[in-house]
Nucleic acid binder design. Structure first.
Lengths: 349, 349
DNA sequence: CCTTGATATGACTGCGCAGTCAGAAGGCCG
DNA sequence: CGGCCTTCTGACTGCGCAGTCATATCAAGG
């Protein structure tokens, strides 16, 4: 299975050098400044001249030079996103939501990934973005790689808790994965389970910590001592390993997994160990990945709405960028809830 | 479940205006040009001055202004990526691979998503990117929204077939999803199945067409008339619907799904219809998503290596950008193969 | 008729950097 | 010692745009 690559040379278009506004001006018989006026929709340009400029520009294939615009205005209209280099459903969905929101606000996106093991990780990624001249920075699902001292010249939006950030403006949003985690745990308790076990995501991820915290708090509030938590790495494989350990303990009747992949791994391990889901054991996931409704059994899970989170948070960031000084307020976000399917049930007996 | 947002005002750092190289020069007691020399690692700068400039720059927090550099050099060292606005595993993985490869080559990434339904879709996205001044464009998994006339001023890399592109250089790579699709089909025939049914991805996607073509060709080569293909939309839900139709036909013994999500939907439908996988029906997927090994039954599928595809293809693109005129050759890529698990077996009897 | 203000256009300039060229300082050769 | 090359540094300039300010035109008002 080799993939072949075709390279076609100058397929038609020669690489023409870009056309500056001065050439448009010459063709239209006006000054360069007037061309600039037309393209910025400034008033005080007669309709006739406006039309002449527009058609001259079209004829020459004029395109405003962003670098020059940025040089004069000091604004690039680009946001930098620091993302994890992963195709996990949650982070990937969040990125899609961020792009959509940014574009709606008139901003382009520069994306830099940080490998999870990368030492200078987030700090280096931010540095890269600052060097590129972004107007603001979005930290999507930051993870803890040890205490950091992150200094940014531009406003920062952190989608997830992240201490140690210094910037003209710091906005933190989406830091409440503990709320849905509570819902999941409460739901299982409400079904009659004595306790709920947790297969957690890697605790370097702030989102994993928040989910674990929500689970723990709920149990404590109910007067239950939280059982030992099993830590996975978001993969179904780690969920499977965790499931094998939990299957060996006959007192386990309900499991809250930190994401759907791990939940699927847990269910698989239970099946292998001869324990039926949900009759013997209830399992609830987190994310509502697209296949969640079609695995066997269909997975009860927590659904989040990344789009509205991204839209709300980015709107606040952009306000902070465009009106320095003001502290933008962020509205609360509704971001989903529990989706009950067939992997959860009241305990036996 | 509301998410709250915190906005902290000037958390420490004032938004200092950027420091130009002339200020560094003044502090170091040299000319602006010498600062430029130091930062471009040009020869003919004495060690003493070099050190003085470097420490002056550090002291002031100097950062080269990318817009100005781009303005003089004409190069932004940024690539534009046109991606689908989707968290599907394939496209998301490809994006991760592209980012990794671009960074390794010293390029930053601008990402624009096209909604699948968006009329001016790819063309508009490319226009957006050209306006941003990217040095090259990557079309990741393009889809067919009708005949297009896409004109780019900069080299274009298309990861997937896409006719109608005019640019100084057009590279097409990854256009051979038909090869793995052949492998999948041949594998099922090799197990003894009389024919193989196909649950295809949406045929607007070139990758879906290529997979369907590979399946069809294999059957024809084996002297088998391809049965009618069922078209899904990549989701498990559509796979489920397709599976219900296929389950009603007792002659169906083997199904090749265009991706793993649909395969999982098919398996679910089969289970509902009382047909066991793989005893009654074999199902093979495509992508090898992370949960594939842990669903019930573990899914036989095709695994692709997006990283090596992206690395090879982007290297060719960058060569094309940096050495205009030359036509870069692209090496063949090995990109994975079949992963046999438990959803496939010889037919009954 | 002149003044005032609104409308319309252009000349000039600077954003920050790197390319070009000029020149200074030092070493080597004949 | 003069000529010449090598090494080092700076002045000047332009990239393409938008901001500032000056100017020109025209209509309305006194």
């Amino acid at each position: 299975m080799g993939g072949t690559g075709d390279t076609a040379p100058g397929s038609g278009a020669a690489r023409r050098r870009p056309v500056p506004s001065s050439e448009v001006a010459k063709l239209a018989g006006v000054s360069q400044k007037t061309v600039s006026r037309v393209f910025n929709d400034e008033p005080y340009v007669s309709d006739e001249i406006r039309q002449r400029v527009i058609s001259a520009a079209r004829e020459l294939g004029y395109r405003r030079n962003n670098a020059a615009r940025q040089l004069t205005s000091g604004r690039s209209h680009r946001l930098g996103v620091v993302s994890l280099g992963t195709a996990l459903y949650g982070p990937a969905s969040l990125l899609v939501g961020i792009e959509r929101a940014a574009r709606a606000l008139g901003y382009a996106l520069s994306v830099v990934n940080t490998a999870e093991g990368d030492a200078d990780g987030i700090v280096g990624a931010v540095e890269t973005l600052l060097n590129q001249g972004v107007d603001g920075i979005v930290l999507s699902e930051p993870i803890d790689l040890g205490p950091i001292r992150l200094v940014s010249d531009v406003p920062v939006l952190s989608l997830g808790q992240l201490p140690g950030v210094t910037a003209p403006l710091v906005i933190t949003a989406g830091s409440t994965a503990d709320v849905p985690a509570r819902m999941a745990t409460e739901y299982l308790l409400g079904l009659g389970h004595r306790t709920v076990h947790h297969v957690a995501g890697p605790q370097r991820w702030y989102s994993a910590r928040e989910r674990a915290a929500g689970w723990r708090t709920t149990l404590l509030n109910a007067g239950i001592t939280p059982p030992e938590m099993v830590e996975g790495d978001w993969t179904a494989a780690s969920g499977h390993a965790a499931g094998q350990r939990l299957a060996a303990d006959p007192s386990v009747t309900a499991v809250f997994a930190g994401n759907d992949d791990m939940a699927i791994g847990v269910i698989r391990a239970m099946a292998r160990a001869g324990r039926t889901v949900p009759a013997d054991i209830s399992v609830i996931g987190f994310d509502d990945i697209p296949v969640a409704a079609y695995v066997n059994p269909p997975l009860t899970t927590i659904s989040q709405s990344f789009d509205s989170l991204a839209a709300t948070a980015l709107a606040a960031l952009v306000r902070g960028i465009e009106r320095p000084g003001e502290t933008p307020l962020m509205n609360d976000v509704q971001f989903g809830g529990i989706v009950v399917r067939e992997s959860t049930a009241p305990p036996r007996s």
